[in-house]
């Protein structure tokens, strides 16, 4: 296992090199000029040219890449073109909201979807099953920003229970943190609840017809034990796969949700950086997302071996 983990960690390196090359050159090929954005509307061509020179954007592209790669190898992600701050500082500032949103969404989604899926499978064809599946279709079909606006209208504007927007750091005021993270997490979570509930139901239904389930029932085990200990565990691999894919998708979902709820997270940093063509920030954030993606896949693979001991690497 350790050998497998080591090999997977080493395999991150070529992935990152490919991502780095791709992101760097794609950014240079896309239209837009950070110098023109910085200079503003009243600027002249000369002023823009001066800024381009200061930012090193006049250098040949290979030279720019060499400088960036050299800095990256020394752990230096560079300085944002706009903020007089290093990219590492910017990312550190924005990490907590995205992390908090992702973790809360995941907890909410898994803790709701798995029981719902199990119950729907156990009561296949019942009204409850139809309600769960109907909700799944709805949750999966509705764009998250629509869900967000509806939740804001009901819980913030009409009922006044929760704030519309903003973020309080967990270390500053836990209750304020909680009340500001609930709506974004529910918004982002609904789609994952729908996705995981459907997969859980389908997987459970598949194993419920297996011989060992019949044997377990014949042994006189209670329905709860049959479902939780025998059915769910054997259905866990596809559920785990979906959760893993879901975590990766969270990154994309966070961009919209963070914008709707004014969360100053990495998703919004990415959008702002793309809109203003802040190359160093875009490059660093995408590399970070790539590392996260690879590590999540690794964790899921390790998770398989826990839920299904037959799987060995």
């Amino acid at each position: 296992m350790l050998d497998f983990i080591a090999r997977r960690l080493v395999s991150i390196i070529p992935v990152l090199v490919v991502v780095a090359l791709f992101v760097f050159f794609m950014l240079r090929l896309t239209p837009g000029d950070p110098a023109a954005v910085i200079a503003g509307d009243n600027a002249t061509s000369d002023q823009i040219a001066d800024i381009r020179e200061k930012l090193g954007l006049n250098l040949p592209i290979w030279q720019q890449f060499g400088i960036w790669l050299g800095n990256m190898l020394q752990g230096n992600f560079g300085e944002s073109f706009f903020f007089k701050k290093t990219v590492a500082e910017l990312i550190a500032q924005r990490l907590e909201p995205t992390l908090a949103l992702s973790v809360c969404t995941l907890i909410l989604a898994v803790s709701t979807a798995v029981p719902l899926g199990v119950i729907a499978a156990y009561r296949q064809g019942s009204l409850l099953d139809r309600v769960v599946m109907g909700f799944s279709v709805l949750g999966f079909s509705m764009p998250s920003f629509v869900i967000g606006y509806c939740l804001i209208y009901v819980f913030a504007i009409e009922l006044g229970w929760l704030p519309v927007q903003g973020y309080t750091r967990i270390g500053v005021d836990f209750w304020s943190f909680l009340e500001r993270i609930i709506l974004p997490s529910v918004t982002l979570g609904i789609i994952y609840v729908a996705l995981i509930a459907r997969i859980t139901r389908a997987s459970i239904l598949e194993v419920l017809n297996e011989d060992y389930i019949r044997t377990a029932r014949a042994k006189g085990l209670s329905n709860r034990v049959v479902l939780m200990r025998h059915a769910l565990r054997n259905a866990a691999v596809p559920i785990l796969t979906v959760i893993g894919v879901g975590i990766a998708l969270l990154i994309g979902g966070a961009i919209v949700t963070e914008s709707v709820f004014g969360l100053p997270g990495l998703g919004r940093l990415t959008v702002e950086a793309v809109l203003s063509r802040d190359f160093p920030t875009i490059q660093a954030v995408i590399l970070l997302f790539s590392v996260v993606y690879v590590l999540i896949n690794l964790l899921i693979d390790i998770g398989y071996t826990i839920f299904d001991p037959r799987i060995r690497y």
Binding site: Y149, I157, P163, V164, Q165, G166, V260, F261, G262, E272
Partner: peptide
């Protein structure tokens, strides 16, 4: 000065007194 890119959220936040 609060950074809030979404215009609908801006309006909701103003209505809510935030």
């Amino acid at each position: 000065w609060i950074a809030m890119p979404d215009v609908q959220t801006q309006v909701a936040a103003l209505q809510n007194g935030e």
